[in-house]
Nucleic acid binder design. Structure first.
Lengths: 138, 138
DNA sequence: ATATCTGCAAATGGTTTGCGGAGGA
DNA sequence: TCCTCCGCAAACCATTTGCAGATAT
């Protein structure tokens, strides 16, 4: 008797490929809807359902990150390795923060909690350069 | 001519009072629905809308925190001062992490980004004690 | 050949909101 | 009294899902 664990084999579809390309090409942290608007012209019959299904698959494959900062919708990030973010509390824009991961935080938290801590997410809040300028002009 | 900036004066209602008490009394990070189930017995006609409206008010008053960790629903925290959290990646439970705030992180991120950074949120991921035990038993 | 994927449209479900009456100040 | 708050129910809206046909391997 042979037991096989069946695992879904992903196909390479043009839609999924373009979604990933669009996500990799932007520095922003777009919503599903924005990605849809970008890819739609190439696939006039494209539906939002396809966008959501592919974003989910890409996330499961570790190709992208889903970011959820408390708004009513998700944002997606074409960089899949862990990194920090900044959200402007005025305009709501999301930026990458390219500082090194502080893995000491995991150790400290492990000591504090006794849990097995593997990872962390860090988000900064404040005013971005643009909003800072507007404020200074007053 | 006198210009008055009208500001809504909150009334003290029994419903809102109980919602805050329930939230302060629990160590967990309950959902709106759980809070509803706790307060409902005292107010048989209570509606979920009232829960949501009051949670929003309490948040605006700085009495509580709304936590949004990427699930489809929010959790609420009766401790309103900033503190760190841990989420078990197996059971999904949310725990407080009582380690001191690392305000150096804000300084580092300010240096990296040039933004005016005031605050940060830090969330740890891993296995909680309970789920760790289950794994060790295998 | 066949299991995955797509477009379409309807469903889902947590949260919000309009309304008329209740109740706190 | 007056304005905020409540209960109720409908609306909202990002996301998910069922289905039938298309497509990648």
């Amino acid at each position: 008797m042979v037991i096989t664990i069946s695992e879904k084999v992903l196909r390479r579809t043009r839609q999924r490929q373009r979604i990933l390309e669009v996500l990799r090409a932007t520095k922003g942290h777009p919503t599903a809807d924005w990605i849809y608007s970008q890819v739609k012209p190439e696939f006039p019959r494209l539906s939002l359902g396809t966008i959501y299904r592919n974003l989910k698959l890409l996330k499961e494959q570790g190709e992208i990150l889903e970011l959820d900062f408390g708004s009513t919708f998700s944002r997606f990030d074409g960089r899949s390795e862990n990194h920090y973010h900044f959200i402007c509390r005025k305009c709501g824009e999301v930026f990458d923060v390219d500082m090194p991961l502080d893995n000491n935080l995991n150790k400290k938290a492990t000591k504090t909690t006794g849990f097995d801590i593997e990872d962390h997410r860090l988000v900064f809040y404040g005013l971005c350069k643009g909003c800072l300028k507007i404020r200074e002009r007053r």
